[in-house]
Amino acid sequence: MADFEIKDLRASVEGRQILKGVSLAIDKGEVHAVMGPNGSGKSTLSHTLMGHPGYTVDGGEVTFKGQNVLELEPDERARLGMFLALQYPVVVPGISMTNFLRTALNAKRGYDGKDKSKQISPKDFRSMLKSELEVLHMDDSFLPRYINDGFSGGEKKRAEILQMAMLKPEIAILDETDSGLDIDSIKFVADAVNRMRGPDLGILIITHYTRILEFIKPDFVHVLVDGKFVLSGGPEVADRLEKTGYAEWGKEEPAQPQEVTT
């Protein structure tokens, strides 16, 4: 059994079934890419995996570390070792990124306000933050700012990657992390992810476009169309899509961006 397993997952949004039976097994150390055209169910997959309340599970299973993930609240999934980098990170006014990172890290360590031995010391927190920033080649200018408040598209995505680096998940889902980014930002994010890549981390990259896969080489590529995988294979699947787009499944959408927006 794989470390992280999705079996026949079906999910709805507002009464309409979007995921119609998705199965996928991810072992730590592997990078999987899920590619699909607009409306294929990519965001539904990522949000359902993390337990967003707007998505209803109609059937199937998700298991991680022997636990039925679908029974867990989002925070429990996160503490178990899952992470979702959102396509649209949310603004939360009045809370600094530093405070957010510290609170999340303490929650991950099992600190519930009582057992102070589980709390990260201010000194350890600072040095950890500093070293992660260095590894990611990020500056600390956005740390005192409120969560995603007034962040540029690139800053938001970098902040997501920093959260991932701090929380050290075992399964990371990157939901269209490349969308809306210029090529430099994509390279930056890809570099950061590649640095985290290793035997302790399984990665699921969800994307419309092949471009980010030029920088983060996937081990497996799955094509999602109308809520089902229609093709799975190695990195060559991405090359095929790059040439022909999603046309062979009746979707006249290229798998390369036509213009770059920043």
């Binding site: 337990g51 309340p53 609240e73 996160a78 503490r79 990170p89 949310v90 609170t103 929650a107 929380l167």
Partner: peptide, 17 residues
């Protein structure tokens, strides 16, 4: 908002907190 709550919770922070 549900979105704010989900975001914070998806980082391991319990709902009440």
């Amino acid at each position: 908002s549900d979105e704010q709550l989900f975001y914070l919770m998806s980082r391991g922070i319990p709902r009440a907190e």
